[in-house]
């Protein structure tokens, strides 16, 4: 099937996640080969995801873990121990 640009835009996310069925993927690729605009949209969307992933490796605030466990310790002392509740 020959896809137009608007169709391809709907498939960009599926294409990036590799969740399109075989035929759709081939149709999308065929379109991308000759469409400068759609292939640029695909590239820029992929770039955003790659740069977003950079944020996964950030530093936690200094002392975060210590403060968290100190606060938890207080809460555990203050609260009654949790008991299994029947659903």
């Amino acid at each position: 099937m020959v896809l137009n640009c608007r169709h391809v835009w709907e498939y960009i996310s599926g294409y990036l996640d590799n969740t399109l069925d075989e035929q759709t993927r081939i149709d999308v690729e065929r379109h991308l080969e000759h469409c400068e605009i759609c292939s640029a949209i695909l590239d820029s969307t992929r770039n955003i995801l790659i740069l977003t992933a950079d944020d996964r490796v950030f530093e936690l605030p200094v002392g975060y873990s210590e403060r968290l466990h100190a606060r938890l310790k207080e809460a555990i002392l203050e609260s009654p121990p949790p008991k299994l509740e029947s659903s």
Binding site: R6, E10, A40, I41, S44, N47, L51, D54, D55
Partner: peptide, 29 residues
Amino acid sequence: GSVVPAQLTDWREIPSESLERAEIRSLIR
């Protein structure tokens, strides 16, 4: 409805400079 992307062809590569990457990350945020 559907969301329409920006149809520009001039941002295709990820900057390699860490400063520029950091700037872009803050734009993304």
